[in-house]
């Protein structure tokens, strides 16, 4: 069974890189939707639910933390797993993200294996190969 994904990042380049990573990572991905900020993401979620979201922090209009906070306060959206994909490396920030309900965290620049390892529990994989988690990717 495949699962739909929403990528939220203001960089179209990053969205395409993540999309390509999802393609080659052997995950059970269905439709991949895109949004360039939190407001667009919420509009996308009104039209079609997704199994997981990959969200940047640093975006205009509504950033990733604002989006995560808004979704956790919404009964319909609060249980959608959100993996933060960001440039930030602060331990305080990562702890903050965990406290407001992020499922996991992957730091840019990331290797495809890091993204796959964080998403495997959510999406499942088409093969049974396993990899050790890198220090820059984490499940909360």
């Amino acid at each position: 069974m495949s699962h739909d994904v929403l990528i939220v990042d203001d960089s179209v380049t990053i969205r395409q890189m993540v999309k390509k990573t999802l393609d080659i990572a052997g995950l059970n991905v269905g439709e991949v939707y895109e949004a360039s900020n939190g407001i667009e993401a919420l509009a996308q979620l009104n039209d079609h639910p997704v199994a997981v979201m990959l969200v940047d922090i640093n975006m205009p209009t509504m950033n990733g933390i604002q989006l995560l906070t808004r979704m956790r306060g919404n009964r319909r959206l609060k249980d959608i797993p959100i993996v933060i994909v960001s440039t930030e490396g602060s331990r305080q920030r990562i702890a903050e993200l965990e406290s407001i309900g992020a499922f996991g965290y992957v730091r840019k620049p990331f290797h495809p294996e890091q993204l796959r390892d964080v998403l495997k529990p959510l999406l499942g994989v088409k093969d049974h190969a396993t990899n050790e988690n890198d220090a820059e990717g984490a499940l909360f």
Binding site: S11, T13, T87, Q92
Partner: peptide
Amino acid sequence: REFMNILCGQLVTQFFGSQDIYNL
């Protein structure tokens, strides 16, 4: 722009460590 976003995030960690929050 995205490359600079990534570079700056890494540079901040390299210069100042990973304890404090930095907004870009």
